[in-house]
């Protein structure tokens, strides 16, 4: 949370100025951009505007105005609630709006129902284990890379900085192709899944090298001096003193990377790994029901990311309470 001052001026949405402005803006937008008479709102307004389809500009204006009033009323009421309830209700309302948007696509839900279990069991499983293995390997790579980048050894620094520069500089999709198609040229045939894991590991290892380097560098020099003066060797100092202290700084961006990787793992679908994206594209192919499968996959990705966000929040809180 940001710094909260002791003086507050009350909720913004309870000021008459805000309410009026909001009201005018929303009503104008609704009136000019949407004709709501054809929707459920027009139907509800039938006693006032008569047959919705024939109500013309008047009907359109009246419906827009009423919806705007309802909208502002809703916001003002939410303004009275406590923070937690505000968050929950606004989340739910946005979610409903969002789903209503998809609902408007006229999707074939039976088709979705028939495929969703396969997508979850096969696709989610593959996506998760490819990402999890990659992030674990990338973390190891990142520690080595970070130490190399901070070392005074010219070879180590050169190799590490070349590595981060190269793998951060190339599009991930290209790396996936290079590894999958390039390694066989060298006489080393590699399966799709290991190729995907290798590409993700190398790419994210490069990003995370920078995260770890910043984390390690943020620990004051005094910690090194105290450790060395007690007879700690380099590795011991790193493992027991420096890394544990940089974890609270490393974990938030690493969680971020993990969430990004979850979705970037969709890029390995191009080499035929049966993860979520691959299934979303192929399952819808036969019957041309692409939208159904893509939206389902999108929601599954989102659900997975939310789980990770929650997990990340918990881990962060754990570390925040431990080191005062």
């Amino acid at each position: 949370m940001l710094y909260a001052d002791t003086v507050t001026s009350g909720p913004l949405v309870h000021k008459s100025g805000t309410i009026i402005v909001l009201m005018v803006v929303v009503a104008t937008l609704l009136f000019t951009l949407f004709n709501l008479t054809g929707t459920i709102f027009g139907e509800l307004m039938r006693p006032v505007i008569g047959e919705p389809a024939e109500s013309g500009l008047y009907g359109r204006f009246a419906t827009g105005l009423v919806v705007a009033i309802l909208f502002v009323l809703n916001i003002v009421l939410i303004g009275f609630l406590k923070f937690q309830f505000q968050v929950i209700i606004v989340w739910l309302q946005l979610l409903v709006l969002f789903l209503a948007f998809f609902y408007g696509f006229d999707l074939d839900f039976n088709f979705i129902r028939s495929k969703v279990w396969f997508m979850v069991s096969q696709g989610v499983f593959t996506t998760l284990y490819v990402s999890a293995i990659s992030i674990a390997l990338a973390s190891v790579l990142a520690i080595v890379g970070a130490v190399a980048k901070l070392s005074s050894n010219g070879f180590a620094y050169a190799i590490a900085s070349f590595y981060t520069s190269f793998f951060r500089g190339l599009p991930l999709l290209m790396q996936v192709y290079l590894i999958y198609l390039g390694l066989p040229q060298l006489g080393y045939v590699i399966n799709a899944v290991p190729a995907g894991i290798l590409a993700l590991t190398l790419c994210y290892g490069a990003y995370m090298t920078e995260i770890f380097r910043a984390g390690i560098q943020s620990i004051p020099k005094g910690q090194w001096e105290a450790s060395r003066s007690l007879g700690f060797k380099f590795g011991l100092t790193m493992r027991r003193i420096i890394l544990p202290q940089s974890l609270p700084l490393i974990i938030p961006p690493t969680g971020n990377q993990f969430i990004a990787m979850l979705k970037d793992s969709s890029l390995v679908s191009v080499i035929g790994v049966w993860e979520l994206m691959f299934l979303a594209r192929t399952l819808g192919n036969k019957t041309f029901q692409h939208m159904e499968m893509l939206i389902t996959a999108a929601l599954i990705y989102w659900a997975l990311s939310m789980c990770l966000e929650l997990a990340q929040g918990r881990i962060e809180r754990h570390f925040r309470t431990k080191s005062h």
């Binding site: 005094g222 910690q223 001096e225 105290a226 003193i241 202290q245």
Partner: peptide
Amino acid sequence: VFQHFNLFPH
């Protein structure tokens, strides 16, 4: 012993 203690805070 250092001026700024340098204890291990974790």
